[in-house]
Structures are given as C-alpha cells and as structure tokens.
Nucleic acid binder design. Structure first.
Length: 744
DNA sequence: TTAACAGGCCTTTTT
DNA sequence: GGCCTGTTAA
C-alpha cells in the first residue's frame, strides 16, 4: 500500500492535483502539514519532479524544520535540495547573491526591532521632529506598514498631499531609508521589499528563480502581506504551480500587514485555481471543536466551512473565574501539578496561553513555587539580551564596518573611557566628511578637540582591524571566543559575581554553542559558513523556534505564538473584556478588530486536543493600576451545554461565596458577564455609561480646552477618569467630576 | 564621564 | 509595576 492511501479523500485530492494553482482551505487540525509533505513526496517520487525545483515557504523556522524532517522521512534521496524556508530567510538567501544589483553591498546586515528603534531615534533628531509628538513606535509602525504594502517614500509623500503631519511621516520614512542604505543594512520588511524590487528591476534574476522554483508551496497563506503576495506572484508567474494552504479563520496578523484578501481573493487572482476544503479535524474532541465553531460563527465575512470530527466527545470545556490574577495562576499551577503527580499527564502536555506577554509573570512565579518545569516563549528574545547584542555588534562591525549603529554600540563597551562627548564629535566629523562612523574613527587624528580620547580611539581601531584580519581565517566560533577573551567581557562579568552576571555568562556560552551549531548545520547542507550567514540566521530566529518538543516542560506563550501548535491540555487565561478582546478602537475599525480578536480566540481554542480550561479574574493589575473586568464575550459565545462551571470551592474569598452561592452556575456566569465592572465599596453608580452623560466616542466641550472626542472612560474608584482628544489642546486625561464636560 | 535618581509612559499581538 | 529617558551630582 502506498503512503497516499492513508489520506482522506480531500487530502488525497490536494496531494494528487499537482499542476496549476491550488488553494487548500485547511481548517484547524485538518492535517495540512501532512498534505504538504505528502504532496512534496508525491511530486518527487511519482511525478519525477527534481527536488531542486521545489520551494516550500513557512512563517517560522520551527515550522520549516518540522516540514523538512517530515519530508526527509517520506522521501529518501534528494530531499536536502528542496528549499524549505521562511519568507525572510529565503529572501536573505536570494539577496545575498544579487543585492549588489540594487546598489547594496552583499555583506548587508539585518536590523532587528531594537536597531530599527535606535535608527528611528536618530531620524527624529536629524529631522528635528518633536519627540513628544513623533514617537519611534508610531513612526516605525508607519514605515513598516508602508513597506508591507510596497509603498516607497515617494508614494507616501504623494499620498500625504498637503497634510503637514502626513508629510512629516513620509519624510521620516525617507530619512530612515537613507540611513539604512548608508549603513548597508536591511530591516525585516526590507528583505521582502528588496526581493520584490530585485525581481521587478532585473528580469533575468526573476527568470532564474522562476525556472528554479517550478513548484511552490506556501503554508499559513492567510497571514501573507502584500509584499509577500507580490513576491509569490512574480515567482509563480511562469509555471503557475502555486499551492497555498491557509484558513481565513486563523488570520491573526493584520496588525503586521497581513492582507486577508490574499486568501479570500485567491480565485480572482488565479481564475483557473482549484479549491480543496479540508474540514475533518483530527486534533480535538467533539466538545472542544463545537466550542471553537460556535465562537467563530459570530464572525461574518468568512469562507463558509464547518469543521467536524470523528474523535470522541471528550470532557466539557471548563470555565473558572477568580478574584484576581494570582488566584488564577495558582489554580492553573495546581491543576497541572495534580495531574502530573497523579501520573495522568506530563508537563509537556500542557500549554498556558494568554493574550499579552505581560500576563506571563504570574504564571512563572506560581510554576516556579510549584516546582513545575516550564518554558516561556516570547517576551525578551535571547538575541535581544544586552550581552548577546554587544557581542553580535562586534561581529557585525567586523563583517560590515558601515553599520554605524553596531560600531557606536561597542565603542565604549566594555568601558574604554570614550564618552558621549567624544562620540558626538566623531559623529559630527563623519557627517561633515560624508564618511561612515568607523571611517571617521580610523582617521581620528584629523578630528579636532578629541584630546585625551584620541589614543583610546586608536586602540579601538587597532583592535577591530586585528579582528578583521583574523576573520579571514577563523571560524565564527573562534572569532567570537577571541572577542570575548580580548575585550575582557567575560572577566568583567565574573568579577561582578552577581546572579545576573552569572546568567549573562551562561548566555554567552550559549551564544558560542549557537555559533558552533551554525557551523555544523552549514557543513551538513554543504553551504559555506560565513559571518554574514551566521548574523542573518541569528537575526531571523523567533523565540518559538527554540521550543524543543522532546523536553518535558509546560509551555507559556501568547496565543499568537501558539499558532500551528497543538497540546493535549490547554489553559486559556485572562478571558476578560478589556484584555481579550482588548482595546478595539471605534467605528469600522472596531468591528474589524473584534473579528480579529475572535479569530485569535478560535486559534487558541483549537490548539487543545483533549482538555480546555478557560479562566479569568475579576480584578487585574494592569500598568500599575487595578482594573475590573467582566467575563469575555467569547466565553459567552460558547453554548452553555458545552461548559463546565466547576465547584464553588474555586472561590477563596468568603464574601464572594455568599454573593454567588444562591445562583446556578450558568446564571452566575451570565450575571458576571452582564454586570458592570465589579466595584469595591458602596456601589453608587449604576453603570459606566450613565454618570458622565457622555460615552466613549462622543464629542464633548471643556471650559478651557474646547471641543474634543472622548477616547476612554475608566473607572478610577472614586471618580471616572476620562481621556479626551481635544482639537486644539491635544490628548488630556481628567477626572469627570472636575472636568464638567458637556456632550455636544 | 559615570552613576544614581526622578518622572513619564506604557501594552497588544512578531518575522 | 517596570522600563526608558533625561537630569543632576560626584
């Protein structure tokens, strides 16, 4: 019997349909990875396609790795010459070869979010923008969105018209881009933009890759943005063998520019496309799937499909409400430790999912005290740690001295007595002479007023030059070890002797072993191990990539990070209005944002195989203040017969017990959902809306500030704290009692 | 030039 | 509550 006999009919259809565009609408847990890998195997073994002609694109390295392994298992020979890669690393590989055609040096560096931020800060100061009004964050988001949709600074300027504010944004984008080019650096978005650029401006290059990638497969297609779409379109133009797999219900990256139209309109772009629906779920119990289906059914504008399963009914979906986040975390830690102690499950069976990274701390605390091994995914990326960035900046400097950011970062790390004033002077000189920062350092004797700092700069330059020479013969690992030794980086940390310093040393050792494993991996794939290559790989890892399925630990992560994974037992924490769904905005946006939050919830629920527990807290510390929350509407959207409300023992505080005892479990949930935010003492106000005479979104008048729009009304205990965006006076926070705002 | 301190600001979500 | 920034003192 062939391996293809194990597929269900639609799966088989998707595997066997090899020529021409194919859209696979794959519901959660419907075996899409299986289809993709079997399809690759089928192409090679049955259709005689050269593995060399296949490109498989995923979003994370982890997914790519998994796919590679599974393909390796199905296909004997030649699997290693298939390109299985993320969008970003595929782009790096292509650009490394050809980017000189666009005027860059092929040793370009990749800027991560931190680098982008520093660069943007520089833009703000260069353009003399008011840093209060123009924040890096906002500017970065603007630039990123422009790039996602393939808009150049010129396009943006044109679009901005006479709007002064818009013009400022466009010019910031222009300046930011100028600096990137000057530093011979590309940010994440550039990798895609420049690849598209390359294909469009150099047909001979495009043609080469079109010939090479005759069969293209794309995973998680619902999360592609316009730039990615364009790149795929260009590549697939010639042979039109493009197979995309996705689920519009799992589109959760709109904020990052994902264009849901790419999947919804696939048949418009490829009229001859075949569509296959995978609707049988192999992952979850009937109850979990029913819960997921009923939540997502509240979204309109989706491709019609209904997931079903042959799996057993399973347990009800559990719902527990707690007084605060501590009790919530304690409960979850307790449940896990009980199940593990009883031998019902191991740690690796569990995942705790939440909406925001900020929620992770409580779980960490409680798991730590309960002595449960866990792994936190997300938050601070390993490569974003100070000590790691410092060392990487040395490597970057050696690799590409045009990267001013890197050079400036390490100039005084470890301390060489070269301070800010000196750096400013060098910077001014470099700008004046139109040379890079490092070039300026090399000719420091020509820079006026450096005084006692000048010899120190010389020492630094000599040191870097010697590293550059070594880099020609050393491996990445050797070079790195040399840097650590010669800068005294490790010695300094040893001297410090604190717990923190110890963990930094561990991280440094970890970095060394990563350099080694890069070396090994490249050797295995028969590709040269280069410094640029290592730096690129390091820049493109996501935290999720480090998850090791064979290790026995509980996973803690955001729902976003959990996409594509599955766990026997899942906790979804913080199911509260205001947190999940979080801030929704107004008007048309509000509906769209809510829909996306709901899809996120759907993704979360469908991660669970056997057991799903939803939890929430009545009050929660957010940004340093206690907030009161109702139960998330998503919980309400699950039919009551699927939900187990649990025992009353969940309540620890007796005063709440009294209040809630009388009611049935579901009425309690209902009540809590409809009730106003819980108030501590003598509830005097009936609802959030009534007391002010105006609501969020209303236009109001203030005696001094004039007319404005209400952005937020927050229960501040004694009074309501109102945030208003005034036409003339800008954004203000005030207490409703004092402000005496009038609805207009 | 560096370290220590006060105040503002923040929060989605990530390759 | 904690991070980042800018200011100030040694």
């Amino acid at each position: 019997m062939s391996i293809y006999e194990n597929l269900n009919p639609p799966q088989k259809e998707a595997v066997l349909y090899t020529e021409g565009p194919l859209l696979i609408l794959a519901g959660a847990g419907s075996g899409k990875t299986r289809v993709l890998t079997h399809r690759i195997a089928y192409l090679i073994e049955e259709k005689g396609v050269n593995p060399w002609n296949i490109l498989a694109i995923t979003f994370t390295n982890k997914a790519a790795q998994e796919m590679r392994e599974r393909v390796d298992n199905l296909v004997g020979m030649g699997a290693e010459s298939i390109w299985v890669s993320t969008f970003h690393s595929a782009c790096v590989r292509i650009l490394r070869r050809h980017i000189d055609l666009l005027g860059y040096d092929n040793h370009f560096v990749i800027y991560d979010t931190d680098d982008q931020k520093s660069l943007m800060k520089e833009v703000i100061s260069l353009l003399r923008l008011d840093p209060k009004e123009y924040r890096e964050r906002g500017l970065m988001a603007y630039v990123s969105h422009a790039k996602d949709s393939l808009k150049t600074p010129d396009d943006c300027a044109k679009e901005a018209g006479r709007d002064e504010n818009e013009q400022k944004y466009a010019s910031a984008y222009r300046e930011y881009q100028r600096l990137l080019v000057k530093n011979n650096a590309l940010d994440f978005d550039d990798l895609l933009v420049k690849t598209v650029d390359l294909f469009q401006k150099h047909p001979e290059v495009l043609e080469y890759y079109q010939e090479r990638f005759r069969y293209i497969l794309v995973d998680e297609y619902q999360d592609t943005n316009t730039a990615q779409f364009e790149m795929l379109s260009l590549l697939a133009e010639r042979y039109r063998n493009i197979c995309v797999v996705g689920d519009d219900d799992q589109s959760i990256y709109k904020f990052r520019g994902a264009n849901i139209h790419n999947i919804l309109g696939f048949e418009d772009n490829y009229p001859e496309a075949k569509v296959v629906r995978l609707e049988q779920n192999y992952r979850s119990t009937k109850n979990i799937l029913a819960a997921a289906n009923s939540v997502i059914a509240n979204n309109t504008m989706r491709k019609d499909k209904t997931l079903w399963t042959d799996n057993p009914e399973g347990k009800l979906v559990a719902f527990r409400q707690f007084h605060n986040g501590y009790e919530e975390a304690e409960y979850i830690a307790g449940e896990i430790s009980q199940a593990v102690a009883k031998g019902e499950a191991s740690c690796r069976d569990f995942a705790i999912l939440y909406r925001t990274n900020a929620q992770s701390r409580l779980f960490e605390e409680k798991l730590l005290t309960a002595n449960i091994p866990y792994k936190l995914v997300g938050g601070l990326n390993f490569y974003a740690r100070k000590e790691i960035k410092d060392l990487l900046c040395y490597l970057k400097t050696v690799d590409n001295a045009r990267d001013d950011l890197a050079v400036r970062r390490i100039l005084n790390v470890p301390r060489r007595g070269i301070g800010n004033t000196t750096q400013e002077r060098v910077l001014a000189y470099a700008a004046e002479m139109n040379i890079s920062f490092y070039e300026a350092l090399r000719v420091s004797e020509e820079i006026p007023y450096l005084g006692r700092s000048q010899p120190k700069i010389d020492d630094f330059v000599t040191f870097i030059q010697s590293l550059k020479t070594k880099a020609e013969s050393y491996t990445v690992r050797e070079l790195l070890e040399d840097i650590i030794e010669l800068t005294g980086y490790r010695d300094e940390l040893i001297k410090e002797g604190t717990e923190e310093a110890k963990s930094r040393i561990e991280n440094i050792d970890e970095l060394i072993s990563k350099a080694q494993s890069y070396q090994d991996a490249m050797e295995e794939e028969n590709r040269p191990a280069t410094l640029s290559g290592f730096l690129a790989e390091v820049a493109l890892v996501a935290d999720i990539d480090s998850v090791d399925d064979s290790q026995d630990y509980v996973l803690l992560m955001t729902i976003h990070s959990a996409k594509g994974l599955e766990f026997p037992r899942v906790f979804m924490a913080g199911m509260e209005e205001g947190l999940f769904p979080g801030f929704l905005g107004f008007g048309k946006e509000e509906d769209e944002n809510l829909a996306e939050e709901r899809r996120l919830c759907y993704v979360g629920i469908t991660r669970a195989m056997q057991e799903l527990t939803l939890t929430c807290a009545r009050e929660r510390m957010m940004r340093g203040e206690t907030k009161f929350h109702r139960i998330s509407r998503f919980v309400e959207e699950i039919p009551r017969e699927l939900v187990d409300m649990g025992q009353k023992t969940v309540e620890k505080k007796p005063k709440f017990d009294e209040k809630y005892n009388a009611r049935t479990a579901y009425a309690e949930m209902k009540k809590a959902f409809q009730a106003k935010p819980y108030e501590k003492s003598e509830p005097k106000k009936a609802s959030v809306k009534a007391p002010c005479g105006y609501d969020v979104g209303d236009t109001v008048r203030h005696a001094k500030f004039g007319v404005g729009i209400v952005l937020e009304i927050k229960d501040g205990g004694r009074d309501y704290e109102v945030t208003v965006d005034f036409e003339t006076a800008g954004r203000r926070k005030m207490f409703a009692g004092f402000a005496a705002l009038q609805k207009v």
